[in-house]
Protein backbone atom coordinates (compact mmCIF):
# COMPACT_ATOMS: atom_id res chain seq x y z
CA UNK A 1 0.00 0.00 0.00
CA UNK A 2 1.26 3.44 -0.78
CA UNK A 3 0.60 6.92 -2.06
CA UNK A 4 1.32 7.53 -5.72
CA UNK A 5 1.38 10.95 -7.36
CA UNK A 6 1.25 10.80 -11.12
CA UNK A 7 2.15 13.97 -13.04
CA UNK A 8 0.47 16.26 -10.52
CA UNK A 9 0.23 19.94 -11.41
CA UNK A 10 -1.30 22.71 -9.39
CA UNK A 11 -1.82 26.19 -10.73
CA UNK A 12 -2.89 29.09 -8.53
CA UNK A 13 -5.29 31.67 -9.96
CA UNK A 14 -5.50 29.86 -13.28
CA UNK A 15 -6.45 32.01 -16.28
CA UNK A 16 -5.78 35.28 -14.43
CA UNK A 17 -2.75 37.57 -14.67
CA UNK A 18 -1.66 36.18 -11.29
CA UNK A 19 -1.46 32.61 -12.61
CA UNK A 20 1.41 30.74 -10.98
CA UNK A 21 2.49 27.14 -11.08
CA UNK A 22 2.78 25.92 -7.50
CA UNK A 23 3.36 22.26 -8.36
CA UNK A 24 4.98 21.38 -11.62
CA UNK A 25 4.66 17.80 -12.85
CA UNK A 26 5.22 15.95 -9.61
CA UNK A 27 5.47 12.17 -9.82
CA UNK A 28 6.25 10.34 -6.64
CA UNK A 29 5.78 7.05 -4.81
CA UNK A 30 5.52 7.03 -1.03
CA UNK A 31 5.61 3.44 0.23
CA UNK A 32 4.28 2.46 3.65
CA UNK A 33 6.36 3.08 6.74
CA UNK A 34 8.95 5.51 5.38
CA UNK A 35 10.19 8.51 7.31
CA UNK A 36 10.51 11.25 4.69
CA UNK A 37 11.90 14.75 5.12
CA UNK A 38 10.75 17.55 2.84
CA UNK A 39 12.97 20.58 2.50
CA UNK A 40 12.77 23.66 0.32
CA UNK A 41 12.80 27.42 0.80
CA UNK A 42 9.64 29.36 1.66
CA UNK A 43 7.33 29.25 -1.35
CA UNK A 44 8.97 26.24 -2.99
CA UNK A 45 5.72 24.25 -2.93
CA UNK A 46 6.21 22.06 0.18
CA UNK A 47 2.96 23.01 1.88
CA UNK A 48 0.99 22.85 -1.36
CA UNK A 49 2.28 19.33 -1.92
CA UNK A 50 1.35 18.30 1.62
CA UNK A 51 -2.17 19.63 1.25
CA UNK A 52 -2.66 17.56 -1.89
CA UNK A 53 -1.86 14.39 -0.01
CA UNK A 54 -4.94 14.58 2.18
CA UNK A 55 -7.19 16.13 -0.40
CA UNK A 56 -7.34 19.66 1.04
CA UNK A 57 -6.28 20.97 -2.36
CA UNK A 58 -7.30 19.36 -5.61
CA UNK A 59 -4.65 19.06 -8.33
CA UNK A 60 -5.24 21.09 -11.50
CA UNK A 61 -4.19 18.02 -13.44
CA UNK A 62 -2.66 14.62 -12.72
CA UNK A 63 -3.72 11.82 -10.38
CA UNK A 64 -3.17 10.80 -6.79
CA UNK A 65 -3.70 7.21 -5.67
CA UNK A 66 -4.05 6.30 -2.02
CA UNK A 67 -3.68 2.56 -1.47
CA UNK A 68 -4.44 1.94 -5.11
CA UNK A 69 -7.58 4.09 -5.24
CA UNK A 70 -7.83 7.31 -7.22
CA UNK A 71 -8.72 9.99 -4.69
CA UNK A 72 -10.34 12.12 -7.38
CA UNK A 73 -12.81 9.37 -8.29
CA UNK A 74 -16.40 10.54 -8.08
CA UNK A 75 -17.31 8.08 -5.31
CA UNK A 76 -14.02 8.20 -3.39
CA UNK A 77 -14.59 9.11 0.25
CA UNK A 78 -12.35 12.16 0.63
CA UNK A 79 -13.63 12.91 4.09
CA UNK A 80 -12.27 9.58 5.20
CA UNK A 81 -8.99 10.32 3.44
CA UNK A 82 -8.50 13.26 5.79
CA UNK A 83 -8.58 10.98 8.79
CA UNK A 84 -6.23 8.50 7.10
CA UNK A 85 -3.69 11.19 6.23
CA UNK A 86 -3.24 13.32 9.34
CA UNK A 87 -1.89 16.81 8.80
CA UNK A 88 -0.26 18.76 11.64
CA UNK A 89 0.04 22.38 10.60
CA UNK A 90 2.67 24.88 11.67
CA UNK A 91 2.16 26.14 15.22
CA UNK A 92 -0.64 23.60 15.74
CA UNK A 93 -1.02 24.68 19.35
CA UNK A 94 -2.88 27.74 18.07
CA UNK A 95 -5.69 25.35 17.22
CA UNK A 96 -6.15 24.02 20.76
CA UNK A 97 -9.44 25.18 22.20
CA UNK A 98 -10.94 22.76 24.73
CA UNK A 99 -11.03 23.28 28.47
CA UNK A 100 -8.75 20.36 29.16
CA UNK A 101 -6.10 18.44 27.29
CA UNK A 102 -8.03 15.16 27.17
CA UNK A 103 -11.16 16.72 25.67
CA UNK A 104 -9.08 18.50 23.09
CA UNK A 105 -7.59 15.24 21.90
CA UNK A 106 -11.05 13.60 21.89
CA UNK A 107 -12.39 16.18 19.45
CA UNK A 108 -11.05 14.52 16.29
CA UNK A 109 -12.11 10.91 16.93
CA UNK A 110 -15.47 12.13 18.27
CA UNK A 111 -16.09 13.79 14.92
CA UNK A 112 -15.36 10.49 13.20
CA UNK A 113 -18.56 9.26 14.84
CA UNK A 114 -16.89 6.67 17.08
CA UNK A 115 -18.50 5.61 20.34
CA UNK A 116 -17.37 7.26 23.53
CA UNK A 117 -15.32 4.36 24.81
CA UNK A 118 -13.33 4.12 21.58
CA UNK A 119 -12.86 7.91 21.48
CA UNK A 120 -11.45 7.94 25.00
CA UNK A 121 -9.24 4.93 24.41
CA UNK A 122 -7.78 6.57 21.33
CA UNK A 123 -7.24 9.90 23.08
CA UNK A 124 -5.52 8.18 25.96
CA UNK A 125 -3.32 6.15 23.63
CA UNK A 126 -2.41 9.20 21.54
CA UNK A 127 -1.41 11.23 24.58
CA UNK A 128 0.76 8.37 25.82
CA UNK A 129 2.40 8.09 22.41
CA UNK A 130 3.47 11.73 22.39
CA UNK A 131 4.92 11.25 25.86
CA UNK A 132 2.65 13.62 27.76
CA UNK A 133 2.63 12.78 31.48
CA UNK A 134 -0.74 11.58 32.86
CA UNK A 135 -0.99 14.35 35.43
CA UNK A 136 -1.38 16.93 32.64
CA UNK A 137 -4.38 15.23 30.97
CA UNK A 138 -6.99 17.25 32.84
CA UNK A 139 -5.18 20.57 32.78
CA UNK A 140 -6.12 23.41 30.49
CA UNK A 141 -4.01 23.11 27.34
CA UNK A 142 -3.22 26.81 27.68
CA UNK A 143 -1.32 26.25 30.92
CA UNK A 144 1.23 23.96 29.31
CA UNK A 145 4.69 24.84 28.01
CA UNK A 146 5.24 25.42 24.28
CA UNK A 147 6.60 21.93 23.72
CA UNK A 148 3.80 20.28 25.71
CA UNK A 149 1.10 22.19 23.82
CA UNK A 150 2.58 21.05 20.58
CA UNK A 151 2.51 17.42 21.74
CA UNK A 152 -1.16 17.76 22.61
CA UNK A 153 -1.86 19.14 19.14
CA UNK A 154 0.00 16.24 17.54
CA UNK A 155 -1.89 13.79 19.78
CA UNK A 156 -5.14 15.30 18.48
CA UNK A 157 -4.18 14.19 14.98
CA UNK A 158 -2.81 10.81 16.12
CA UNK A 159 -6.11 10.02 17.84
CA UNK A 160 -7.70 9.85 14.38
CA UNK A 161 -5.37 6.86 13.81
CA UNK A 162 -3.99 8.11 10.52
CA UNK A 163 -1.95 5.79 8.32
CA UNK A 164 0.18 8.71 7.19
CA UNK A 165 1.27 11.55 9.43
CA UNK A 166 2.39 14.84 7.88
CA UNK A 167 4.04 17.42 10.11
CA UNK A 168 4.75 20.94 8.90
CA UNK A 169 7.73 22.24 10.88
CA UNK A 170 6.78 20.65 14.18
CA UNK A 171 9.80 22.08 15.98
CA UNK A 172 9.62 25.76 14.94
CA UNK A 173 10.04 28.06 17.93
CA UNK A 174 10.93 25.31 20.40
CA UNK A 175 14.11 25.33 22.46
CA UNK A 176 16.83 22.85 21.47
CA UNK A 177 15.78 20.20 24.00
CA UNK A 178 12.13 20.62 23.00
CA UNK A 179 13.13 20.06 19.38
CA UNK A 180 15.01 16.87 20.16
CA UNK A 181 12.21 15.56 22.38
CA UNK A 182 9.53 16.03 19.73
CA UNK A 183 11.64 14.50 16.97
CA UNK A 184 12.66 11.52 19.11
CA UNK A 185 9.02 10.97 19.95
CA UNK A 186 8.01 11.08 16.27
CA UNK A 187 10.79 8.68 15.33
CA UNK A 188 9.71 6.27 18.04
CA UNK A 189 6.10 6.52 16.93
CA UNK A 190 7.08 5.81 13.35
CA UNK A 191 9.13 2.77 14.37
CA UNK A 192 6.49 1.35 16.70
CA UNK A 193 3.43 1.82 14.54
CA UNK A 194 4.97 1.52 11.08
CA UNK A 195 3.19 4.75 10.20
CA UNK A 196 4.44 6.70 7.19
CA UNK A 197 5.76 10.08 8.37
CA UNK A 198 6.44 13.15 6.26
CA UNK A 199 8.34 15.90 8.02
CA UNK A 200 8.58 19.37 6.54
CA UNK A 201 11.59 21.08 8.08
CA UNK A 202 13.85 24.09 7.76
CA UNK A 203 16.53 22.39 9.81
CA UNK A 204 18.99 20.45 7.69
CA UNK A 205 20.54 19.08 10.88
CA UNK A 206 17.21 17.58 11.93
CA UNK A 207 16.44 15.88 8.63
CA UNK A 208 20.02 14.56 8.46
CA UNK A 209 19.55 12.99 11.88
CA UNK A 210 16.09 11.45 11.56
CA UNK A 211 14.74 10.68 8.09
CA UNK A 212 15.30 7.81 5.61
CA UNK A 213 14.64 9.83 2.50
CA UNK A 214 14.64 13.51 1.56
CA UNK A 215 12.55 15.32 -1.03
CA UNK A 216 14.02 18.67 -2.02
CA UNK A 217 11.43 21.06 -3.47
CA UNK A 218 12.26 24.04 -5.64
CA UNK A 219 9.88 26.14 -7.73
CA UNK A 220 7.17 23.55 -7.51
CA UNK A 221 9.39 20.72 -8.69
CA UNK A 222 11.23 17.92 -6.95
CA UNK A 223 14.89 18.77 -7.29
CA UNK A 224 16.26 15.74 -5.44
CA UNK A 225 14.64 12.62 -4.07
CA UNK A 226 17.18 10.41 -2.37
CA UNK A 227 18.76 9.18 0.85
CA UNK A 228 20.03 12.05 3.09
CA UNK A 229 23.71 11.38 2.40
CA UNK A 230 23.14 11.42 -1.35
CA UNK A 231 21.08 14.62 -1.19
CA UNK A 232 23.60 16.50 0.91
CA UNK A 233 26.40 15.66 -1.52
CA UNK A 234 24.76 18.34 -3.66
CA UNK A 235 25.40 21.02 -1.05
CA UNK A 236 26.40 23.63 -3.63
CA UNK A 237 23.21 23.13 -5.62
CA UNK A 238 21.22 23.21 -2.37
CA UNK A 239 22.73 26.58 -1.53
CA UNK A 240 21.67 27.90 -4.89
CA UNK A 241 18.06 27.13 -4.02
CA UNK A 242 18.24 28.78 -0.58
CA UNK A 243 19.07 25.64 1.40
CA UNK A 244 22.26 24.24 2.82
CA UNK A 245 23.85 21.04 4.05
CA UNK A 246 24.10 20.25 7.76
CA UNK A 247 27.07 21.98 9.35
CA UNK A 248 28.81 18.67 9.94
CA UNK A 249 28.95 18.10 6.17
CA UNK A 250 30.63 21.48 5.60
CA UNK A 251 33.21 20.67 8.22
CA UNK A 252 34.03 17.39 6.48
CA UNK A 253 34.50 19.14 3.15
CA UNK A 254 36.74 21.78 4.77
CA UNK A 255 38.88 19.14 6.42
CA UNK A 256 39.29 17.18 3.24
CA UNK A 257 40.24 20.32 1.37
CA UNK A 258 42.93 21.01 3.99
CA UNK A 259 44.39 17.57 3.49
CA UNK A 260 42.76 15.33 6.09
CA UNK A 261 41.57 12.32 4.08
CA UNK A 262 38.05 12.02 5.56
CA UNK A 263 35.01 10.54 3.91
CA UNK A 264 32.82 13.59 3.28
CA UNK A 265 29.57 11.64 3.55
CA UNK A 266 29.19 12.25 7.30
CA UNK A 267 26.10 14.40 7.87
CA UNK A 268 25.54 14.14 11.62
CA UNK A 269 27.83 15.17 14.48
CA UNK A 270 28.12 11.56 15.58
CA UNK A 271 29.20 10.36 12.14
CA UNK A 272 31.56 13.28 11.69
CA UNK A 273 33.23 12.65 15.05
CA UNK A 274 33.75 8.96 14.26
CA UNK A 275 35.17 9.69 10.86
CA UNK A 276 37.50 12.52 11.94
CA UNK A 277 38.82 10.50 14.88
CA UNK A 278 39.48 7.58 12.54
CA UNK A 279 41.23 9.75 9.94
CA UNK A 280 43.35 11.55 12.55
CA UNK A 281 44.48 8.22 14.06
CA UNK A 282 45.20 6.78 10.62
CA UNK A 283 47.32 9.85 9.90
CA UNK A 284 49.45 9.19 13.02
CA UNK A 285 47.39 11.14 15.59
CA UNK A 286 47.83 14.58 17.11
CA UNK A 287 50.60 15.56 19.54
CA UNK A 288 49.41 14.77 23.07
CA UNK A 289 46.68 12.44 21.87
CA UNK A 290 45.32 9.94 24.37
CA UNK A 291 43.21 6.83 24.04
CA UNK A 292 39.50 6.84 23.63
CA UNK A 293 37.70 8.29 26.63
CA UNK A 294 34.43 6.50 26.00
Amino acid sequence: MSIILDHVNYIYEKDTPLERKALDDISLVIPDGQFIGIIGHTGSGKSTLMQHLNGLIRATSGSIYFNGEDIYDRDYDRKKLRSRVGLVFQYPEHQLFEIDVFRDVCFGPKNLGLDRREVELRAYDALRRVGLPDELFYQSPFELSGGQKRRVAIAGVLAMKPEVLILDEPTAGLDPRGRTEILEQIKKLQRETGMTVLLVSHSMEDVAEYVDRILVMNQGRILYDDAPKAVFRHYRELEEVGLAAPQAAYIMHDLRERGLPVNTDAITVEEAAEEIARAVRAAGGLPGMTGQRI
Binding site: D175, P176, R177, G178, E205, P246, Q247, A248, I251, V269, E270, A272, A273, E274, I276, A277, V280, L286, P287, G288, M289, T290, G291, Q292, R293, I294
Partner: peptide, 24 residues
Protein backbone atom coordinates in the same frame (compact mmCIF):
# COMPACT_ATOMS: atom_id res chain seq x y z
CA UNK B 1 23.85 24.08 28.59
CA UNK B 2 22.21 20.76 27.83
CA UNK B 3 20.91 20.69 31.40
CA UNK B 4 19.33 24.07 30.69
CA UNK B 5 17.55 22.53 27.65
CA UNK B 6 19.94 24.32 25.32
CA UNK B 7 22.65 23.25 22.97
CA UNK B 8 25.93 24.41 21.44
CA UNK B 9 26.75 25.10 17.78
CA UNK B 10 27.28 21.88 15.81
CA UNK B 11 31.00 22.57 15.34
CA UNK B 12 31.39 23.06 19.11
CA UNK B 13 29.54 19.80 19.74
CA UNK B 14 31.72 18.04 17.19
CA UNK B 15 34.89 19.28 18.92
CA UNK B 16 33.46 18.10 22.24
CA UNK B 17 32.73 14.66 20.76
CA UNK B 18 36.28 14.55 19.40
CA UNK B 19 37.63 15.37 22.87
CA UNK B 20 35.59 12.43 24.15
CA UNK B 21 37.32 10.28 21.55
CA UNK B 22 40.71 11.29 22.90
CA UNK B 23 41.64 14.18 20.62
CA UNK B 24 43.41 16.96 22.54
Amino acid sequence: LQDLRLDVPQVTLLAYELQNRGLP
